[in-house]
Amino acid sequence: PIAENVSAQVLQVAKDYSHILFAADSFGKAASPRVAAKLDVAQISEIIKVVSEDTFKRPIYAGAAIATVKSLDPVKVLTVRVTAFDPVGQEGTASIEKIEAVLGTSKVVFLGAEKVESNRPELQSAKIVIAGGRGLANEAEFAEMEQLADKLKAAVGTTRAVVDAGMAPNDWQIGQTGKIIAPELYIGLGISGAIQHIAGIKDAKVIVAVNKDPEAPIFDVADYGLVADAMDVIRQLQTKL
């Protein structure tokens, strides 16, 4: 769906609701500002906790601080960081209503979508994530990390710097401008821990960091840290598994 059309559809029924929520993914971030602007209300982005019907918590400064925000607007338009909330069952009793479709815009046309096929778990839903940084020197070393990930049935991630260098695809990127993840186990190999990347992994249950620089910032958030060369560790784990 096109964000312009979905926002128009939402606005058709918005007057009947006090809260309008979108997931804080690329699509929600495209559609929600349009809804908020048309309703002339402030949007509250990436909430991680509901305090009350008009008060919410959200990260600021790339997750370095948590702001408590209260909205006095009659309609609350929110994007939700889904990794901050535990999944719930599907036994709810909410009713589903059909509404009339609005006429779509002619200014934006959907041309197509390219889906990346992978046998690995999806990055944002995986229980184990292995991520490689600039400590891995080239695509061949990333390929060795991928082999380790496959043995652990893990998803593969990386940092923006690695993506920008062309050593990994965009859909691997974790961080403030990538994907926010919350796996049971995150293993960072050769990742220094820029604040933008840390913002994407802070919700992981266990964080393991491997870096040969003992001063690397990622050790400040890691549950377990190992000062070592990332490739040495990858190859030793390969022989053990």
Score class of each variant (00 low, 15 high):
151 K>A: 13
211 N>M: 07
71 S>R: 12
37 A>W: 02
77 V>A: 04
122 E>N: 06
214 P>H: 01
98 K>G: 12
23 A>M: 02
62 A>D: 11
3 A>Y: 05
50 V>H: 08
56 F>S: 04
138 N>P: 10
87 P>A: 03
135 G>V: 09
166 G>M: 01
117 E>K: 15
52 S>C: 02
200 G>A: 00
37 A>N: 10
38 K>F: 01
199 A>G: 09
134 R>Q: 12
150 D>H: 01
152 L>A: 15
68 T>R: 02
180 I>M: 09
185 L>C: 08
176 Q>A: 11
78 L>E: 00
85 F>L: 05
224 Y>R: 06
212 K>R: 14
131 A>P: 01
146 E>F: 06
27 F>I: 03
117 E>I: 14
55 T>N: 05
68 T>S: 12
224 Y>K: 11
238 Q>N: 15
156 V>D: 09
188 G>L: 01
62 A>G: 03
180 I>K: 06
235 R>W: 04
27 F>L: 09
4 E>L: 10
3 A>M: 04
10 V>P: 10
214 P>S: 12
156 V>W: 03
175 G>W: 08
230 A>R: 06
133 G>R: 00
123 L>H: 04
110 F>L: 12
81 R>N: 15
67 A>C: 05
49 K>L: 05
141 E>V: 09
77 V>F: 08
87 P>V: 02
216 A>L: 05
211 N>V: 04
83 T>I: 14
126 A>D: 11
128 I>H: 01
59 P>M: 10
151 K>P: 03
137 A>N: 12
126 A>W: 05
152 L>N: 06
231 M>V: 03
34 R>L: 14
207 I>E: 05
2 I>H: 13
170 N>V: 11
1 P>I: 08
32 S>G: 11
158 T>L: 07
31 A>W: 09
132 G>M: 04
24 A>H: 13
140 A>H: 10
207 I>Y: 10
182 A>V: 04
156 V>F: 06
19 H>I: 14
63 G>C: 03
4 E>N: 09
143 A>T: 12
101 A>Q: 13
183 P>Q: 08
177 T>H: 03
233 V>E: 12
220 D>T: 14
193 G>M: 02
81 R>S: 14
132 G>T: 07
208 V>D: 11
115 K>H: 11
79 T>A: 00
80 V>F: 01
35 V>E: 00
179 K>N: 14
106 S>P: 00
127 K>N: 14
32 S>M: 11
187 I>Q: 08
45 S>Q: 11
132 G>Q: 03
143 A>N: 11
38 K>M: 02
102 V>R: 07
150 D>V: 10
180 I>C: 11
26 S>E: 13
178 G>V: 06
98 K>Q: 13
136 L>I: 10
211 N>D: 15
219 F>V: 06
200 G>L: 07
54 D>M: 03
26 S>A: 15
174 I>R: 08
108 V>S: 11
35 V>Q: 11
102 V>M: 08
27 F>A: 13
222 A>V: 04
201 I>H: 09
226 L>Q: 07
28 G>F: 04
104 G>D: 13
121 P>E: 12
170 N>G: 03
231 M>T: 08
191 I>Q: 10
67 A>V: 00
219 F>N: 05
119 N>K: 14
111 L>W: 00
169 P>V: 02
45 S>W: 02
29 K>I: 00
144 E>C: 00
43 Q>H: 01
74 P>M: 01
162 V>R: 06
112 G>N: 04
101 A>F: 05
